[in-house]
Amino acid sequence: MGQVANAAIVILFDGVAYGMLLFIMSVGLSITMGLMGFVNLAHGGFAMAGGYVLVSLMVGLGVPFIAALVLAAVFVAVLSIPFERYLYRRLYEADELDHVLLSIGLVLMATAAITFIYGPSAVSITVPDYLNGQVDLGFGTFPAYRTFTIGVGGLLILGLWYGFEGTIIGAKIRAAVDNRRMAQSIGINVDRLFVIAFALGSGLAALGGGLAIEIIGMEPTFALTYLVFFLIVVAVGGLGSIRGAFVAALLLGLIDTAGKYLWPDGGAFFIYAVTITILLIRPLGLFGRA
């Protein structure tokens, strides 16, 4: 009995940590896809860039972990602005096929560039001592790093919730997600919102990419490997819905972790079966609106 309960707690904890990680990496994609309607398959590329910038900062320049995490996110957020201005923007009016092709092209270039610079094998970092080992939360001891990830995810949710519900810029973004033309005609500068949302989303992805190194690893194929997961989070959650992305990411993290523990050979099967079922019943996702 004790063993079963222990296993359940491990699955639950790991699943939530993994779900939080997926949420951090994909929430930006949900916002930008809801706002601009751009199917961005290169979103994982920004997450990957975050991971590798973090490695460079820590290993190359000796920047401490937390500072490097923040710096990497800011760096990638700024880096992403020209992409939005000069590439993505040209195709907002085009159809999904063009979005898919452009962003696949960018992912291939990013993968090749990272392989060229950092080599094809996985990279690693040394996390500070306080994130190593176990931490006692009062009701049990848990891996410190995963606890930290869950904490970061929780803070981000609070921050995003406040940002979207409590600030003018958040209200403008929500208005533009609901009806872009209407928002434009009452004088909201939608163009500027696009840049802000895109940079924010890429920065968050980069933060997630930095956190991901210790949990799911980081190698040049990262962007392509996890691409499908990011898309699932966005589609199942519903475009532009932060709550949706959170629920979907948590669901995905839990199902994937449980599947891998309980049925290692065919564990991944569940995720896709559940995704298809949800999309067949709710084509706009759990929290999506037409």
Partner: peptide, 21 residues
């Protein structure tokens, strides 16, 4: 060089989508 090829095909794709749709 596999990387060169991958980068090239990615670049080609971007160029095709933007200019030679």
């Amino acid at each position: 060089s596999p990387e060169f090829w991958e980068f090239g095909i990615g670049l080609l794709l971007v160029v095709v989508v933007l200019f030679f749709r």
